[in-house]
Design a protein around this nucleic acid. Structure first.
Lengths: 241, 241
DNA sequence: GCAAAAGTGTTAATCTTACACCCATGC
DNA sequence: GCATGGGTGTAAGATTAACACTTTTGC
């Protein structure tokens, strides 16, 4: 950390340069619907990017922990709370924002589209299948690609995809979701074996209903993997060491 | 990205709050010496952290790409250029810096201690074995731990550890290095098989000299894996798409 | 009874781990 | 000649990949 902050503080009185960088967060909000991995976008309100969509983001407030900022953005823009969020990368090239110097930290979020649907019927917001997205405002396509890459790595090891599904789901739904994220087909028997070995799931002893074929068993994720609620500030209070 | 930047710009005239956050980079500079993974630290110059060591960092300049900042810090503080650097995580809790609100992006760097030794004989700088480090100024211990964790994951897949070694090295040296980073012992035969399968190395057809035992063969990493020179700006110029 | 998806096991191939002996050099 | 680390192969175990048939439901 800045050994030279003192120096900077002296300079601050003469020129405000060091404080002429704004910092924002951008949220890649993933959802899953109709066998597509989707991302929630908003119409860009900048002339430079007319007609393009952009990620949801906002400047970080001076009195706000960086980890709290993406929670606030999600809540303010979509009403969603209790979401899974993960920091991915910080983007700060000089020309990434046309209105000034803005460095942004990208987070991805996983939400259950159906459960949150009522909250997000703002007509400036729209769910786009990620495979349809060619270009976005700012450097948001690059941010999106970086987050998809991270998501793909992460779901192989960690029980996070359940945040994209309703509480109860069948193994078929889960496999379709993995296939949508990874962009590959998986063998059904091997997929089931691998998932069961991970020991992430609880058998609900219920079956699918109203399906035009043999119904599948329903599962939920174990409660210990459902720790998605806390903001950074809440975590610090609860788990202070 | 900030849909609300316009809003922020309006507020800027009334209160400078959004620009009262400074952003810095901190570099976890790893080296390898005497079978120890080491990190280059500087004595903290803040009263609050008297006696503690801290990472090398500096505020990002308003006219500087974020990816260039850690290169600049390394060059200014140690004279080192041509180093491997990787962004890891951005830390921004409210109280992490006693002098004000500073959000910092952590990078780790891998350097060959012997090759860079002449440049870093500044007596405020010191190489510390990471296993000896109990506490650091600011949240730098947490930053260090995060970077070590990332380094451990990364060396299993990517040919980056060679940046910590001289150009020519034996398989024994390489294995000792992996063991130092991972903190485990490895089986020699299995290690050699795995490394050779990766196909990262070129046999120099030379042998160690002046060793009090049977000399080992010397290897170097393939040239295609030695792309550590470019700054972000240079990359943009060369690889603009 | 037919369409559609659920459910299930075995085999081959690959990767990983454990392990021991002879060799080349300096002293 | 002895101490030190270099160099090498094989067998057992674990993991992964490929693959097909029967079952249950709605219509």
């Amino acid at each position: 950390m800045p050994q030279s902050l003192k120096t900077a503080e002296i300079e601050k009185s003469t020129h405000q340069d060091y404080f002429n960088i704004a910092i924002s967060v951008d949220c890649v909000i993933f959802g899953y619907e109709n066998k597509d991995l989707k991302v929630l976008l908003i119409r860009s309100d900048l002339e430079e990017f007319e007609g393009l969509w952009s990620l949801l983001g906002d400047l970080i407030r001076p009195d706000e922990d960086i980890e709290d900022a993406p929670y606030r953005v999600l809540k303010e823009r979509t009403g969603m709370t209790n979401v899974y969020l993960e920091q991915v990368y910080t983007f700060g090239s000089l020309d990434r924002h046309p209105s000034g110097r803005v460095i942004t930290t990208a987070y991805f979020s996983l939400v259950d589209i159906l459960h949150h649907q009522t909250a997000s019927n703002n007509n400036e917001l729209h769910w786009h299948p990620v495979s349809d997205i060619k270009d976005l405002a700012f450097d948001h396509k690059k941010i999106l690609d970086t987050c998809i890459e991270r998501l793909r790595e992460k779901i192989m090891e960690q029980p996070i995809v359940f945040n994209l599904l309703p509480d109860k789901f069948s193994l078929r739904q889960l496999q379709d979701l993995y296939e949508a994220i990874l962009g590959v087909e998986l063998d059904r028997r091997n997929f089931r074996k691998r998932i069961m070995l991970k020991n992430w799931l609880v058998d609900m002893n219920e079956m699918e209903e109203d399906v035009p074929h043999r119904p599948g068993k329903l599962y939920k994720v174990k409660n210990i993997y459902k720790n998605k609620t806390l903001t950074a500030t809440a975590k610090e209070i609860l788990f202070a060491d």
